[in-house]
């Protein structure tokens, strides 16, 4: 269980996280979603006591992280930036962490085997590939067999097998009753693993909802794709209805993209006018689209505006 209450982090005049409150429940995978620069990593660092919040507080399993006498037994975390000395072997890295809690050294062997690093455990971590580095990060997170697991962008840099492994791992951790918080900027990844979503943009909470609700909420204006040899006639009939838009597809003359009417209405209309339909497909908004829709105002680095401000600045300097 993770609880954030009014978390705020300011770096000088810049606010990275603003008044963020949420609860992460045990037993399910919770996705922590947001575009790059939305404050996900900063929030996770505050949960772990690495950064002190400017305002607000966060507790994990009922206590502030730093107040746990054996924190690695409560929370295991893998942060996005690597947290390993490049000159030390993976085994010694884990052994040093295990020693702080007096964990037996056989536990180091266990987690090394668990993440599949057995072959390279005695090699310098600096020589690891990105994927091996991620696996080592996960081994560190699981070292204390924690009730809460926090993973920042865990699939970054992993090969397909590694990605599948992470997904299964996260699901089984949740199935064992643990609290699992996973950040990502990839909606498609969250659609496959998470049940619940906490969406942030520009450091603010945008949504705290189930994945299913999140998608359906965003697909209110869903479109229907219609393929018919009588596309011109059907288009005219549809446009006569109030609030309906029927646009011919740019590439295929026999396809219409219809919004404002569902597939049943379109089917009935076609039948009444004895028009033949080849295809009638409701187009569900993907999680990706839902996310884009919700965060489009909250994206930190929007290409258009950024270019415009840079342009203005040039002009101002010139003047």
């Amino acid at each position: 269980m993770i609880e954030a209450v009014g978390l705020t982090k300011r770096y000088g005049p810049k606010t990275a996280v603003e008044d963020l409150s949420f609860t992460v429940r045990p037993g399910i995978v919770t996705g922590f979603l947001g575009p790059n620069g939305a404050g996900k990593s900063t929030t996770m660092r505050m949960l772990l006591g690495l950064d002190a919040p400017t305002e607000g507080h966060a507790t994990v399993n009922g206590r502030r992280y730093a107040d746990h006498p054996a924190p690695l037994r409560e929370v295991g975390a893998m942060l996005e930036a690597r947290a390993v000395h490049t000159g030390r072997s993976a085994w010694n890295h884990l052994a040093a962490l295990a020693a702080t809690h007096g964990l037996p050294m056989r536990r180091v062997d266990e987690v090394v085997d668990l993440v599949g690093l057995h072959e390279v455990a005695r090699k310098r971590a600096g020589a690891f590939s990105l994927g091996m580095g991620q696996r080592l990060g996960i081994a560190s997170a699981l070292l204390g067999d924690p009730a809460t697991v926090i993973l920042d962008e865990p699939v970054n840099g992993l090969d397909p097998e590694g990605i599948l492994w992470i997904r299964n791992l996260m699901k089984s951790l949740a199935a064992e009753g643990r609290t699992v918080l996973v950040s990502s900027h990839l909606m498609s990844e969250m659609a496959l693993t998470a049940e619940h979503l906490i969406v942030v943009g520009r450091g603010r909470l945008i949504a705290d909802t189930s994945v299913a609700e999140f998608t359906s909420r965003a697909s209110v204006g869903q479109a229907v794709r219609v393929r018919t040899p009588d596309s011109v006639r059907l288009g005219e009939l549809l446009r006569d209805l109030p609030g309906v838009l029927a646009t011919p597809d740019e590439e295929r003359a026999d396809v219409l993209d219809v919004t404002g009417a569902d597939s049943e209405q379109i089917g009935h209309l076609a039948a009444r006018n004895q028009l033949v339909l080849f295809e009638l497909t409701p187009h569900q908004a993907s999680l990706e689209e839902a996310f884009m829709e919700l965060t489009k105002d909250a994206v930190e680095y929007q290409t258009g505006t950024a270019a415009r401000t840079a342009d203005q600045r040039v002009k101002e300097t010139a003047a």
Partner: peptide
Amino acid sequence: VLEAARIPTTLPPESETKVS
């Protein structure tokens, strides 16, 4: 791959593993 997702737990009780 699927096998690896099982988490072994052979640790002493938490009260014996405090940071000191």
